[in-house]
């Protein structure tokens, strides 16, 4: 009934808007005060834009998307026509690196998204219910956390067969315990907070307490973890691609490109160097951004 709003309501809504705008300004000023966070944000935006605009940026889009062969352009060093050189099939490496950004974005979203989709509800459930549910979850996550992720994901990929989607699934299956633990810890500590107690006293329904009061406040540390994990997801997926257990050629995935380039390392350095640089800059972007988020949310971390 928006038409019959009382003046106080309008004033409240305006105040809330102003508060949000102030929040955004504060966030921006914190961001602008940290050059490394800005650099991280810039690198991540660059990655996203490259992925979105790949067909327009890549000089030879067909080289990344179609099975083509340019015999006369095999393994050419960087030049104006091919700034990153060409590979053993005469494909333009710049175009393939540009399209690799799409694969990378897909990896980042799928791995971290799926890990959160599994971990957050389980962690929240264990945090609320406590008792044997949380004991079982703790034991289960102990097992996963006792094994370095890459080892377990290699085992899972082999079980399923090497492919990019299996590699992403395996990484998510290995990473969800981190999110479960984090969410559980958050829920446990938030459950004790005064404002949750107060909400319960005035008769707010349990489901609203869970979603509006607890999970909303647990989101920030999850965002920090997710942005850092995105960098690690790129590294892990590229690593799996490199040893042949991730994306398969001719997918323009950076790890696979490096693994192919390795055969020509001594004489055709550009084949290996440029895809690796792309991995490095993307991971750097997510790490700097994640560190920046953490510093913003945790005032104690300043100056460390």
């Amino acid at each position: 009934m928006a038409e019959t709003r009382l003046p106080q309501d309008l004033a409240l809504a305006a105040a809330a808007r102003a508060e949000r705008a102030r929040g955004a300004r504060v966030a921006w000023s914190l961001l602008a005060a940290s050059p490394t966070t800005l650099l991280g944000l810039g690198l991540v935006l660059l990655l996203i834009l490259t992925a979105l605009l790949a067909p327009f940026i890549a000089p030879y889009p067909d080289d990344a998307t179609k099975p083509v062969l340019h015999i006369r352009d095999r393994l050419k060093p960087p030049s104006w026509a091919h700034p990153f050189g060409t590979d053993e099939l005469g494909k333009d490496i710049l175009s393939r690196v540009v399209f690799g950004a799409r694969v990378t974005i897909e990896i980042v979203l799928r791995v971290v998204g799926l890990a959160m989709l599994i971990g957050v509800p389980l962690g929240a459930m264990a945090g609320f219910l406590g008792g044997w549910v949380s004991t079982v979850l703790l034991r289960l996550t102990d097992v996963f956390l006792a094994l370095p992720g890459l080892v377990l994901s290699i085992a899972i990929v082999m079980l399923l067969g090497p492919s990019l989607s299996h590699a992403m699934l395996a990484l998510a299956l290995v990473w969800w315990p981190g999110y479960a633990r984090l969410t559980q810890g958050q829920v446990l500590s938030l459950k004790q907070e005064g404002f949750v107690e107060a909400a319960r006293c005035v008769g707010v329904s349990p489901s609203r307490i869970i979603f509006d009061h607890i999970l909303r406040n647990a989101v920030t540390p999850l965002i920090v973890k997710a942005s850092l994990d995105m960098g690690y997801a790129i590294l892990a997926a590229a690593g799996l691609g490199y040893i042949g257990l991730g994306a398969q050629p001719p997918t323009p995935e950076w790890g696979v490109m490096i693994s192919k380039g390795r055969n020509y390392l001594a004489d055709q350095w550009w084949y290996t160097v440029f895809p690796g640089l792309a991995i490095f800059l993307s991971v750097l972007g997510f790490n700097l951004l994640g560190d920046g988020f953490r510093d913003m949310l945790d005032p104690n971390a300043h100056g460390r």
């Binding site: 690593g239 490199y242 490096i258």
Partner: peptide
């Protein structure tokens, strides 16, 4: 900052090169 963002296998290849 760089140390945790470098793909180890790539760094290894660069050192070999």
């Amino acid at each position: 900052v760089a140390g945790v963002a470098l793909p180890a296998f790539w760094l290894g290849l660069l050192l070999q090169l």
